[in-house]
């Protein structure tokens, strides 16, 4: 997804983490063939810049509100246009995207850290009726009741220490447990490179360390995230007819000593710790990826394919 430096930075896509020659090979589509995804939004200080960017929180909310009011108007014109083609408004890609949001077909993935910013997102979501997932939610532990009352899910991140930026100064590992006890649907994300995506399981373990139940922590790595993407009919649990996406572990998923032995996506083996090339990905740095790319390109077992 695009970054958090804009109030609304663009669309997101849902994809499988498998190798593909093009993006078309890895995106997730609905039965009609549409590429699935949502919209990325952000509030707080990341989008505070020189005009035309906002410089205050109220201005940020006003700009967002203005856009959605405009989209509501566009949507009314579309409805009239369906009754009377003469009245159909000109196509407007920006407005069309926001209408998808207003009609709850696209989920808003909303970067937000501070307690007041979180509550602002809840307010705007209620006002315009859009579906939203809160991302990061660093101070979510301060407004867990409010989040639960709004029935809004959270995709959270736990980091090794607080701080690094003012909005993350109160980020604590207890957030997962607090949200769980409040009844909030909670998932994890890595925000790689903020945390290493290869250590995604660690996030759940740290959640348990700070008060989450094992059950909810594992759900937060799997089915909870699937629900937030409206993909729980396809992924997130091991059930007949679902996509054959699974991992084979050497032990307890929440133990530091456990390794991912194999990763399977859509029924295909995409990672095997016993394969030296794959292993390099599991333990090496960016250079591992570079070497791997060259290897696969020209000298691999598959040759020039």
């Amino acid at each position: 997804m695009p970054g958090s430096g804009h109030l609304l930075s663009g669309q997101t896509i849902y994809m499988k983490n498998k190798r593909g020659r093009t993006i078309e090979d890895v995106v997730i589509r609905d039965p009609a063939g549409n590429i699935l995804g949502g919209i990325k939004m952000a509030n707080g200080t990341n989008s505070h810049r020189e005009p035309p960017f906002p410089a205050t929180r109220a201005k940020s909310a006003a700009l967002v509100r203005q856009k959605f009011v405009k989209a509501q108007e566009y949507r009314r014109k579309l409805e009239k246009g369906r009754e009377d083609p003469e009245k159909m408004p000109e196509r407007d890609l920006e407005m069309e995207a926001l209408v998808e949001v207003l009609e709850r077909r696209w989920v808003v993935h909303h970067h937000t850290h501070r307690n007041d910013d979180i509550v602002t997102v809840l307010r705007l979501a209620k006002e315009f009726g859009f579906k939203v997932v809160l991302h990061h939610v660093s101070e979510g532990w301060k407004v867990a009741e409010e989040i639960a009352a709004a029935d809004v899910p959270c995709s959270i991140i736990l980091v090794d220490s607080p701080g690094g930026k003012i909005e993350a100064m109160n980020l604590i590992m207890e957030t997962g447990g607090v949200l769980e006890r409040a009844g909030v649907l909670t998932a994890f994300h890595t925000d790689d490179p903020i945390t290493d995506s290869r250590l995604f399981l660690r996030m759940a373990a740290l959640g348990v360390r700070a008060g989450m139940s094992r059950e909810k922590a594992l759900e937060a790595l799997t089915i909870a995230g699937a629900k937030m993407l409206d993909l729980d009919h396809r992924i997130g649990s091991l059930e007949p007819r679902k996509d054959a996406d699974f991992i084979i572990l050497t032990g307890d998923p929440l133990s530091v000593y456990t390794r991912v032995q194999q990763t399977w996506i859509d029924g295909e083996l995409v990672f095997d710790l016993d394969n030296p090339d794959d292993r390099l990905f599991a333990v090496g740095g960016y250079g591992a990826g570079k070497d791997q790319a060259m290897h696969l390109c020209c000298f691999g077992p598959q040759g020039h394919d």
């Binding site: 090794d160 220490s161 607080p162 701080g163 980020l171 250590l199 530091v256 000593y257 390794r259």
Partner: peptide, 21 residues
């Protein structure tokens, strides 16, 4: 040394992952 989030690593955790590797 970390210049962003997280502002520091915790050496206990770094030794732990070394113990797993």
């Amino acid at each position: 040394y970390e210049d962003y989030v997280p502002k520091t690593r915790v050496v206990l955790f770094e030794a732990a992952v070394a113990a797993a590797n």
